[in-house]
Design a protein around this nucleic acid. Structure first.
Lengths: 216, 216, 216, 216
DNA sequence: CATGAATGAGGCTTCATTCAT
DNA sequence: TATGAATGAAGCCTCATTCAT
């Protein structure tokens, strides 16, 4: 792909991101994207197979960006707690950035349930996020700072709390709460990771679920 | 509204739920809903103002149902930890129920960013969920089981972890992991709530964010 | 038809008239008519074959009413000029009445071009109106008040001017102009009828028209 | 707007005119227009905001055309009576043209009562028509040919009689009567304008109307 | 007689995609 | 490469009509 083509594609992806952010995944038209990119309507079709192709590349690009940013942040720190703090702080970059990313990310998560490609891209993103968590927990345990939790479980929980917190913050639509959620997220994780008095139960209790459709 | 009308509306909401679950919010047509409800095309428009009205009532109904179910579950228990366990277990009702609800719920969360009514209904749902969390934490602190965490913060974090865990579980699309996520969620919360060695920092550090748009 | 049925039909026609007046012919729904008549939706279909049938009877009823009213008015007068004045004054009954009638009448005239039944009903209305004109002109000529114009031509022109004036008045949408148009209409007609210095040319000049579609 | 676009729009307007003429305003579908224009269904929406926008432009175009034609006709004549004759003859262009225009025009007049834009376009058309009448009457009075009637009143009456006559002719649906109506219209107007024995009553008699709804 | 629930046809509109220029 | 005109599929919604109660 020529250099110019790559530039055009990036230009279109940025426009698509902005369009999804402002209008929502299913309300975005190719015309919208063209408008935001300041190009004509045919260009998008020229550089991407179709609309879905645009969104696949968009999801890939944006989750990759998020991961790289978070990864870079923890690389600059040396203790587990500092890395954890850096991880959370970077995940909670700013109200503006978080609103942009999580709005769009939520749209993609919804779509993933009906779109295998989106799901795979998100799987990769999850893997990346978990690897950050694992690195931090591993270091913390080596340091003796953290309790002896299962590393995978901890990394899942860390990302779950980060995502869950930012989604909750997003839905509350109040920028003032951003730092509050960020700090609460960090405190909750660190408190959990440093609790050495846990009654560890790694064994999985086999569960029998009630019949289907009990609730809804 | 007559009894029969109420029944019809419920029938349509169930159909809409199923339709959103299977096809995704924006792919659902009124014809789909009619098909799932086994009625003719015009019926949905007869009982609801328009498509959006259907979805508003659907969101209200389904989140109400979830809340009532969770609320009932903790009412049957008496210690804080039992209530917490009941809360988490009920939130993680079953793979089938969770997949149904969270797929649909994710769609609504996405839409909420562009739909004030959805947002308000979700606000109410959040309030309800937090009230459950508050009740549990308060009891745990009275019992001396839980550490002296800020009750609101804890209730936010509890719901964030539940939602975050179930969303992550949903995206991984592996029913086998359901019990694992459920138990991990419970352990993480209880470990966090029972850690009495925390360095509590309720003060909010004023934060200066970097310029807008640094990352994306 | 039973007395009650006749009453119901009249009730529906009144409602239909009001509905057409307010919403326009093609925007009127059977539900509208039912609402104005304060009956349920099925009633209209019960008393009339279908929507068009309602409108046929409505047109018949309303033009009949207008004619009877005008006919009665001139019967009370004895000189040609008094009759003419009465005719015009009754045709220009009041801003409110004229607005109601001519709005609805215009709708019917439009429809008549695509609806043979409407056309026939209007033909009858025209006949009735012309007969009034003829009666007045005949008397005026017997009195010596009016010039020796062709009676048919005069009666056509009289009605054309009345309708043309009231339509123009209606379109200008200014009640203040009502008396002005009424008086202007009367003066124009009487001036025309009393002009005895005309160069009468009853012979019809055969006309050759340009090819079709020259203008539009 | 490019030249080609303007051509396309004109093409669509012609098609819309034909469609309204044949099917009536409210029976015309965008598909009809597309069919008459021999283009695909989406084209009309491409060149006009929506259906109403098409009709607004259509009304503007067609009334403008009629006015220009009439205005050109009287410019070629030099005496008041010749101009008047030209005015009437041009207004009564031909059975075919008149049927086309007045059918469509009637539809628009009906709609105007529920559509402010149509009303405004017709207001402009009226102004234009009246200006023709005023020019003729003014000249006739300067010449001494016409009586000393109020110029505005005369110009209103002239157009009212032209429109009223052509509507009556249209409703009678008999092309043979066209020349008859045309000549009767001219004779009536000229007879009225040349009657110098009128009892002029420019003063407006204040009128008290009966209560509302007496008749209908 | 009267009601109003239910049906399903049909119109307006939006928009992804194609393709001639 | 880039444009934007053109196509036509598809969805929402309205509503005349039917019919069981």
């Amino acid at each position: 792909m020529s250099n110019k083509a790559a530039k055009r594609r990036k230009q279109i992806l940025r426009a698509a991101f902005q369009a999804v952010f402002e209008k929502g995944f299913d309300n975005v038209t190719l015309q919208d994207i063209a408008d935001y990119a300041d190009v004509s309507k045919g260009v998008t079709s020229y550089y991407f197979q179709n609309k879905e192709d645009v969104f696949c590349h968009l999801l890939e690009w944006v989750t990759g960006k998020i991961y790289k940013n978070e990864h870079a942040a923890i690389s600059n720190e040396h203790t587990a707690l500092d890395k954890l703090r850096a991880y959370v702080n970077t995940a909670f970059a700013s109200p503006s950035d978080n609103r942009k990313f999580y709005r769009v990310y939520l749209e993609f998560l919804s779509q993933s349930n009906h779109n295998e490609q989106f799901r795979q891209i998100n799987d990769q993103f999850y893997e990346n996020c978990w690897s950050i968590g694992r690195e931090i927990v591993q270091l913390g345990q080596k340091e003796g700072t953290f309790a002896n939790v299962n590393i995978d479980k901890a990394s899942y929980a860390i990302r779950a709390l980060i995502d869950g917190s930012l989604i909750q913050w997003l839905m509350r639509n109040d920028d003032e709460l951003h730092a509050f959620y960020r700090d609460n997220c960090f405190e909750t994780i660190s408190s959990y990771l440093t609790n050495k008095n846990r009654q560890n139960s790694d064994q999985l209790i086999s569960t029998s679920y009630p019949e289907e459709g009990l609730i809804l």
